[in-house]
Structures are given as structure tokens and as C-alpha cells.
């Protein structure tokens, strides 16, 4: 499946949900937030949120800032 992930075009095989994508990226259990086609996906719904070809996904975390 083709996903626009954090602004970059990426190809993933055997992935159907946000939870599987997060797992594949090694981010399961990390303090992140996910947006799917500009809608927030609460952590509790990662597993049930299905991805489609050409979806846009943003994964963010907190960094130093003022």
C-alpha cells in the first residue's frame, strides 16, 4: 500500500490499519499522535482505523520548543 507518511511517499506491504503501521515503524507504545487524512486518530482507535491506498498519515511527537 502507498501512504503519504509525514509528507513522504512510502510503500508498505501487508498493512491494513493505523496500529499495524505504527507497529511496523517501531513506534508501538511510544508517545506519539497520529492524524489520518487530517483527522486525529485516538490511540484507542488505532487498531480499528483502516488505511487505504494514497492515504495521508502524520505521526508527531513532542520536541524542545519555546
Amino acid at each position: 500500500m502507498h501512504v503519504l507518511l509525514n509528507g513522504e511517499s512510502r510503500q508498505f506491504d501487508d498493512i491494513n490499519t493505523v496500529a499495524e503501521l505504527v507497529e511496523r515503524l517501531g513506534l508501538a507504545g511510544k508517545r506519539i499522535a497520529v492524524e489520518h487524512n487530517e483527522t486525529i486518530v485516538p490511540r484507542s482507535r488505532h487498531a480499528e482505523t483502516e488505511l487505504s491506498d494514497n492515504d495521508r498519515v502524520e505521526i508527531v511527537h513532542a520536541i524542545g520548543g519555546g
Binding site: R31, V60, H61, G64, G65
Partner: peptide, 29 residues
């Protein structure tokens, strides 16, 4: 205060996270 930015997906996912150092249980983030 903290900023919100895209995760560096190419990098080591086990690198320390700011919120591990500045804990939300101790500070109001």
C-alpha cells in the same frame, strides 16, 4: 512548553523522548 513535530521515522525509535526527560507527571506540559 514543548513543540509538536513530525516524528523522525528513519531514526532510532528507541532514542530518548523529550517527555521521558520532562515528565508530564511532574510538569504541566
Amino acid at each position: 512548553t514543548v513543540a509538536v513535530r513530525r516524528s523522525n521515522l528513519g531514526q532510532d525509535p528507541d532514542a530518548p523522548n523529550l517527555l521521558d526527560v520532562i515528565s508530564p507527571s511532574r510538569y504541566t506540559i
